[in-house]
Write a protein that binds this DNA or RNA. Structure first.
Length: 112
DNA sequence: CGCTTGACGTACA
DNA sequence: TTGTACGCCAAGC
């Protein structure tokens, strides 16, 4: 698709997030890499915050460790986790008793 | 108009 | 191996 404007970076993130299948999750790094820059993960986070306000399923986007980072943007610390569990996403205990999404089982890659 | 912060990740010392 | 620094892009002050 033809590029539009420099801020199109946000729209690309939203486009990818909107294509995440039900019950699947992806990571900031994968989205950023799909956009062209692996280190743009931070910018992806900014776009996700705006995505939450756009009504996109940004709760399907987690960090590299499967940890839910943007729970604050959902208005509740357990909203994001509950949404993922409602979609059938499995949670695994992290190395610090921290529940993380089983990305190994639900990881979805942009372009699939 | 310029510096700092921010839902991360990779590279290097 | 662990810790620190850098990079990406946009918004806020």
């Amino acid at each position: 698709m033809a590029a539009k404007s420099p801020s199109d970076f946000f729209e690309r993130v939203w486009e990818v997030v909107a294509e995440i299948p039900f019950g699947s999750v992806t990571t900031y790094g994968h989205i950023a890499a799909h956009l062209g820059s692996k280190r743009a993960a931070r910018t992806v986070g900014w776009a996700l915050r705006a995505a939450a306000q756009s009504g996109l399923p940004c709760h399907r986007v987690v960090n590299r460790y499967g940890g839910l980072s943007g729970h604050a943007a959902f208005g509740g610390p357990h909203v994001m986790e509950d949404l993922l569990r409602s979609e059938g996403v499995s949670f695994v205990d992290g190395e610090n008793d921290v529940p993380c999404v089983d990305i190994k089982q639900h990881l979805w890659v942009p372009g699939t």
